[in-house]
Write a protein that binds this DNA or RNA. Structure first.
Lengths: 345, 345
DNA sequence: GGCGGTCTTGCAAACGTTCTCACATCGATA
DNA sequence: TATCGATGTGAGAACGTTTGCAAGACCGCC
């Protein structure tokens, strides 16, 4: 019933625990004859080393914690998959938790994972409060590396590692694409400006406009809530005043807001990619269901995952993987074109 | 640097380890005065119990392993999220691994998770081979519960628990929906018939037809490979012989095949929901991007997750959660209607 | 034949808990 | 005052590993 231990094996073979251990781990002196005897015997049994005991002794759990606000987001899954691929090759496994967007749950998991003594932590936090720092600090004091993804707390210790999207570049890329297609009157639906994500994307829009000697018209800037209803509402407002403040294209700065904006355009009897060009942000339509196909800027999830994975290994085993060159990484978005953008002129 | 231990605390307070342990765990006799003294001291420090040591002593890891072929499938994420929600309330955490559809990797993870002594295992296996059984048997011999999801191995011990979709009912529901809309000449694109998933859905199609006194025309049955290209190819074949073997509707028995079939129809210049009615299987278009919206039967992922979560707790702590009533569960699919089905007559 | 090296093996400590047991104290009861 | 149960505390074993150390066997060399 209960798994066999080294002790059981040793007793049956009339050997000491140490000797059997040495055979199993293949380190230390063992007479070839003895080694074979142990190996042969082991083949007939079902011994599996107890990793928990090993962890206790070695003071490392070979486990990496991942805390996320919502596991259902495709975005995170791709990242996790890559992280798993990279770190599992080095023997690490992933302990994953979904906080369901709750700060309280996030803290609870931060606690639980520390109890479990994860060797490192990857987190997409929703809690930028200084109040959280004690929870995070425990890890840092303990020398346990943390990598933030998706966003990162203001606190700017050099112990804070992150891999996030270059929001400026992403929105710049989106707007520039519209401009390259001949659009000049470009609206933007941004997210909350007090969140870095919202603010930076908005800045990216301005940067691209100015780089092309276009002046962002304040009336063409709408502030949403990152959700579909916000995107819908913003688009409505823009459309209602379109005769006064005309525009031929719009950049929507999040996936869900893009969904809402598309619906608003359709309901106004206008056609996307014909009357109005739309470029979204991080729209996932991998099944290719949308018509017209939605042009969007996307983050390279695989790259993020691989970067995080590698950085983890480098932080955990610098002697083996080398010290990480850069621990604050902003990855570049890429353009996924689609027929939601029509050429102008 | 290194986390404090009970020993450290005990020494500083001039108490024994046992006493401090009793305070921390709130069990056993401790004088109120002592208790306060310990608590006060603890508040100034950063002691976090070492769960690894606890696990070793208690012979349980408070950890549940989850092995999946591809973490990116939305389907799995919803299930995981629910499982996490349910079992985390009881103190369990999830150890998740992505086998990337590789049998070899699956076995490796089966091994690794056993080393880590997970208290239970949830697996969507791609390996029905008897050759796998030794890996699975280790768990069973050890009394570690396993719950299969998505599919389950032929081996029919009563130790084999599962929560899967009722494929018969699902395809029956799909076909019946077409019939209810007036369609009588109904084609089906099935998956591999040597896989239970493919076979059962196909049977469901036949059952619904016969229940309505319709005779499935063998020429209207196409066998795909569960992938988009298979769906495309099958749809092509059906369309090419449509004058000889006419049909007004088709049921496609998997998500990716549905995508392929839709493309084929479009490329033939036909309109879905007008020339041909389509009902898919497990098509995820939660963003609502498709036009027309795709009617589909779907599995209730949340229900699956909750069932699995509850069953886990019941298997792990029957004294607390009661013994599970049923350990072989087939959940019912539900209909998600869409404009890809037009009414006939 | 003694010496120094390489092998071979086992003992025992350590990792940080939990928990049984033994012992001590104390107030209440007979 | 002796006895008892309840209360309070600590010593130490146990969980299953890894590993430093010691002791002995074996070998070749001077």
């Amino acid at each position: 019933m209960k798994p066999e231990t080294l002790k059981d094996i040793a007793k049956e073979l009339n050997l000491s625990i140490s000797t059997v251990s040495r055979v199993v781990n293949g380190k230390g002196y063992v007479k070839e004859e003895t080694r074979q005897r142990v190996l042969d015997f082991l083949a007939t049994r079902n011994y599996v080393p107890n990793e928990i005991a090993r962890s206790l002794k070695a003071q490392e759990s070979m486990t990496i914690g991942i805390i996320l606000p919502d596991l259902r987001e495709v975005y995170f899954n791709r990242i996790i998959k890559e992280i798993d691929r990279v770190v599992s090759a080095a023997g690490y496994m992933l302990l994953i938790a979904d906080t369901n967007e709750s700060k309280k749950t996030e803290r609870r998991y931060l606690d639980l994972m520390f109890q479990k003594r994860v060797d490192a932590l990857v987190i997409s936090t929703i809690d930028m409060d200084p109040a959280e720092t004690p929870y995070v600090e425990r890890y840092l004091n303990n020398g346990t590396p943390i990598i933030f993804i998706d966003n990162h707390p203001k606190l700017d210790s050099d112990q804070v590692n992150f891999v996030v999207l270059d929001n400026h570049q992403a929105s710049r890329l989106a707007v520039q694409t519209l401009i390259d297609n001949g659009h000049r009157d470009i609206a933007v639906i941004a997210g909350y400006l007090d969140e870095p994500t919202g603010y930076e994307r908005m800045e990216g829009y301005c940067q691209a406009m100015e780089a092309n000697d276009l002046h962002p018209d304040p009336a063409l800037i709408a502030i949403g809530n990152f959700k579909a209803d916000g995107g819908y509402r913003c688009m409505e407002e823009l459309l209602l005043q379109r005769d006064v403040h005309p525009f031929t294209a719009v950049h929507v700065a999040s996936e869900m807001m893009t969904i809402g904006a598309l619906r608003a355009i359709r309901e106004h009897g206008l056609t996307v990619g014909q009357d109005i060009a739309v470029i979204g942000f991080d729209v996932h339509d991998d099944l290719g269901l949308a018509t017209p196909t939605i042009a969007t800027v996307r983050q390279p999830e695989e790259e993020v995952g691989q970067r995080v994975g590698l950085m983890l290994l480098q932080l955990l085993r610098p002697e083996k993987y080398g010290a990480p060159e850069e621990t604050k990484v902003r990855v570049k978005a890429y353009l996924q074109s689609g027929s939601s953008i029509h050429k102008l002129q």
